[in-house]
Nucleic acid binder design. Structure first.
Lengths: 208, 208
DNA sequence: CTCTGTGAACATCTTCACAGCT
DNA sequence: AGCTGTGAAGATGTTCACAGAG
């Protein structure tokens, strides 16, 4: 299969959400135009994105809402459940652990870790916070597929390295620092301070 | 000035963080190569990004760490303080309100809102949660520059529209839905479920 | 006639490679 | 000699526009 761009994958997620919405409203088919409007892009982009995986639409009619949603779930890898651990039981880590949206989309929280002994033993989002003395061993034992890292910036790279050694293949990094994937692990960064700074830049430009 | 790409602005933020780090380690100059390594990009990219704003480096030497940091702060609009409000006092909203990293970078939390009366009156991150009966009026009174939106997906667009009318020019949207900027407001989306799905896609591809 | 699927045109972003300043 | 600054080349992503299926 052709290499799919990152932005394209992100849009597929948005399409899926729009389709679930359309399904909830009882719509049976949807045009690329309507799907684009609901996802903040253009109809040509929608068709191009979808055409990379096959021909799902009916000319003159549009796409079957339920069918396309099912296809997208398959493409995105949401046809199975994923085991996730959260490393760092600070404010953000706890908020994420309690967020049910992840579970609804196939991501099950199976473990949580913190190096601060005061936080160990607390029960959050259905799991008990563990310490880090046997971190790699514990993560491996939990058979985690994906880890969410919410530790301070200076600890992030070390945690990522350990996670890779423990067999975690996907990492969502909330630490405000660039981390390198050790082996072939997939890394995505969510950097909220950076987003605010990008807004500050945009506003500064507009004001000049 | 030339139009600067979004990815370029994001990298400037990363450079700034790397520079602050280098400054803390007492380094006086830094090469594009070193800056690239610390930010996860290439030296050519660093030089290209910086060259769009002028010639800050010294050939044969590199960039002055303190000087370049100051320049980047100016470019990014971090030479002033920004007033932010958080709309939605749920788990994520509260976690963000308590996060001090924003303040350190020039973003002051000046107000917080929630439509749930049970949450109104609670004190979080130095402000008291307000209700929404006089939402637009209150936001305008706070002279907010930027808003962080952490309300449920179905309420997000309405909130964004109201914020625009209240004079807010930049919006950081955490709701998992595409929102349209009403007037010229700048919008950025942080969609954590989407990032997890992109990871699921990457892992599914690797496994095939 | 409507709306998809797609090559081709266009635009944007990244990398290369080297001239030229210090 | 070392390292920046930058045109030019190359790669990637988006939009156009239309043939063709239903």
């Amino acid at each position: 299969m052709k290499r799919i761009s990152d932005s394209s994958v992100r849009r597929l997620s948005l399409y899926l959400r729009a389709l679930e919405d359309a399904l909830a409203h009882g719509r049976a088919t949807i045009s690329s135009e309507a799907l684009a409007r609901a996802s903040g892009t253009t109809s040509a982009q929608v068709r191009k994105d979808l055409s990379m995986f096959g021909s799902f639409g009916k000319r003159g009619l549009g796409y079957g809402v339920a069918e396309l949603a099912e296809r997208l779930r398959g493409i995105l890898g949401l046809g199975r459940r994923w085991r996730i651990v959260i490393v760092g039981a600070g404010k953000i880590g706890i908020a994420l652990a309690q967020y049910h949206g992840f579970r609804d989309r196939g991501f099950d929280l199976v473990g949580m870790f913190d190096r601060d002994p005061d936080r160990v033993g607390r029960r959050v989002g259905g799991v008990t916070v563990r310490g880090v003395n046997r971190f790699e061993h514990d993560v491996r034992g939990l058979a985690a597929d994906v880890a969410i890292v919410t530790v301070p910036a200076d600890a992030a790279q070390g945690v990522v390295d350990q996670l890779s050694r423990a067999g975690v293949r996907g990492i969502l990094n909330f630490a405000p620092t660039a981390v390198r994937a050790t082996d072939g692990a997939a890394i995505r960064n969510v950097n909220m301070a950076l987003e605010l700074e990008a807004l500050a830049y945009a506003l500064t430009q507009g004001a000049d």
